[in-house]
Design a protein around this nucleic acid. Structure first.
Lengths: 227, 227
DNA sequence: ACCTGAACACCGTTCAAGT
DNA sequence: ACCTGAACACCGTTCAAGT
């Protein structure tokens, strides 16, 4: 309450004051650049440039690039709506929906997906997501250890799918596959020849949905070793 | 048979002749460096240096770094023994064994695993592996579309697991997890608190094996959409 | 404590010029 | 066709020196 009598809390001259650095500020700029140009452009040097400072200054607030990417992921996770309770008997549907939302989120940010794969995120919003997934598995009466081990698998599938598909969409490397299944010599690879076009059948959505269904089924029904 | 009469096929002076560049030669050096120091050291510049040339010269033989990594992976895949036929009724065991061998191969080369994840390999030895996996799924009477869609998933799980675990082993970032499951406030994340230590229970091997079992079960029993 | 410029030790890829 | 040096356009991180 002993306020700033008279003197404005801005810098001496009228020029736009250089805002103080902060972890949140750095992350916010990284998120913006990611949306506009992709995470790979949100380098330490670029961030520093946008914040009108030197790259070295950022290291006061973030340990390294990996940690920064973790913070960006957690920020992005705020956009996933975790609130809907699954109606009774609908846990499977809701689980697939949630995993689909997470996949889609990463799908349009392939470089974030690639980072997330080697990150083991620990941010609050990531923990919220994991907690929600566990709640749904519990609603489905999945034994506790299977749920605990399985939740990792589900998230990994989502992340890896996004990293893989998203990157290929980016580099246009996907068409190789369409080619190779047809060009494969049937004599040398009889089983590839046998399944033929099934290797590339279905839409990305259909395959993604089926993948989650299959993995959830396996998690729910396959017993873990005792211990 | 019109052999090199008299003149030795080496360079004029006795100095070690600079061997001609070739795609195989480049890949061989990359494989050696990967074994000795990790794939991340096998950069274009380093390769060129070892081959006593400029980095630009390599681009005559490989399109880019991604393609080079694909060739390295295929080379490494020659070490997996695909020959054993699965005894009747043992397809599941053999499938897990094969996937385990692939995982282990990548596990000690995390940077290769990370590359493989976004690569969609098409080398002959990779196709052999896929063919073998498909043969085993056929031996298990898995419907053809489920096998075709599932084989991708199995390979992805192996690759992602290796990339994730291997990297953490490398950077020592894994211990975070051990911490966070205990430090998580039970009030905010009730389901994480409920499963508690199960989130980190079991050895890497046990979890890996269970993951493959669960996914194989799901692939074998979950129907794909008609079409 | 926070911030900085400069340095260290690198990258992948392209290109004009040579042979 | 193959090979090259040099250039272009970058990286992450550390460190001594300032405030």
């Amino acid at each position: 309450m002993t306020a700033s009598r008279g003197r404005a809390p801005v810098s001496r001259r009228e020029r736009p004051a250089k805002p103080a650095l902060s972890r949140d500020g750095i992350v916010a700029v990284a998120v913006r650049i990611m949306h506009e140009e992709g995470l790979e452009k949100a380098t330490m040097r670029r961030l520093a440039q946008e914040l009108d400072t030197g790259a070295a200054s950022l290291y006061v607030y973030v340990r390294n690039t990996a940690e920064l990417h973790g913070a960006v992921l957690d920020q992005l996770l705020t956009t996933i709506d975790l609130s809907p309770e699954a109606p009774a008997g609908q846990w499977r549907e809701r689980l697939i929906e949630l995993l689909g939302a997470y996949t889609e989120l990463l799908f349009t940010r392939p470089s974030l997906a690639r980072s997330a794969l080697t990150l083991r995120p620990t941010g609050p919003h990531y923990l919220r997501l994991v907690d929600s997934l566990l709640a749904l598995l519990r609603a489905g009466d999945v034994p506790v250890r299977q749920a605990a081990w399985g939740v990792d698998l589900l998230v990994q599938l989502a992340t890896a799918t996004a990293a893989e598909q998203g990157t290929r969409k980016e580099t246009g490397a996907g068409d190789d596959l369409t080619f190779y299944v047809r060009d494969v010599p049937a004599g040398e690879y009889p089983d590839i020849a046998r399944v033929g076009d099934e290797l590339i059948s279905g839409t990305g959505r259909q395959r993604g949905r089926w993948a989650f269904e299959a993995l959830i089924d396996g998690i729910a029904t396959t017993g873990t070793p005792a211990g």
